[in-house]
Amino acid sequence: MLSIQNLHASIEDKKILNGIDLQINAGEVHAIMGPNGSGKSTLASVLAGRNDYEVTYGSVEFDGVDLLEMSPEERAREGLFLAFQYPIEIPGVSTTNFIKTAVNETRKHRGLEPLDAVAFLKLMKERMKLVKIDQSLLSRSLNEGFSGGEKKRNEIFQMAMLEPKLAILDETDSGLDIDALRIVADGVNTLKRADNAVLLITHYQRLLDYIVPDFVHVLYNGRIVKSGGKELALELEERGYDFIKQEVAEEV
């Protein structure tokens, strides 16, 4: 589904990604871990199309098409979803209207009729239960005055509404207490299907207790330096990132 080859990216002449190779297939859950500053969030941003970053080398194919050629909205409509690490507060834009616009833009792209008010509300009610999000939140301005946990749940709620092929969760676990984490994880697990995939970006192994990955990759200095199964995450939790840094140093 997603094929990243030798991806290099920089911001204002500072190199952040130094040759990433990653293959994600339908039905898989991948986790990317790594110390601060290793390039995790940059990877998420580059995939979602944030224009602060310049891709200097490499390619990304999403279902056989060149992802890097597409605008952020085209990527979203093609089924790529980024759950933001820091969801933006947008006063004056109603959450419900925003999601309705987003859903219908995606439907239009897929050649489907827009949902009418009744069908939209029905879908919304159903998906709200999934992330235990309250109606009162959705009638407010987008993320305005939401707590950290509410913002993250709203991200997963949007994911549930948009039904992406590939969901990238950028440190969705940060700032969540254990109950909120469980709700978010339950939501993601429920939405998991054989024809979609999830890329989790996280610092901590904690999230992976709830969303079990098929593959774990360690990102360091803008490269994937180690890949393995879910047991790699446990090893990292136990030994910290230092042993990875050491291994990398020894290779050089």
Binding site: A48, G49, R50, N51, S71, P72, E73, R75, A76, R77, L82, F84, P87, I88, I90, V93, F98, I99, T101, A102, E105, T106, H109, Q158, L162
Partner: peptide, 10 residues
């Protein structure tokens, strides 16, 4: 960017 990342054009 947040809005565009949800499929809403610029």
């Amino acid at each position: 960017f947040y809005l565009r990342a949800r499929g809403i054009d610029e």
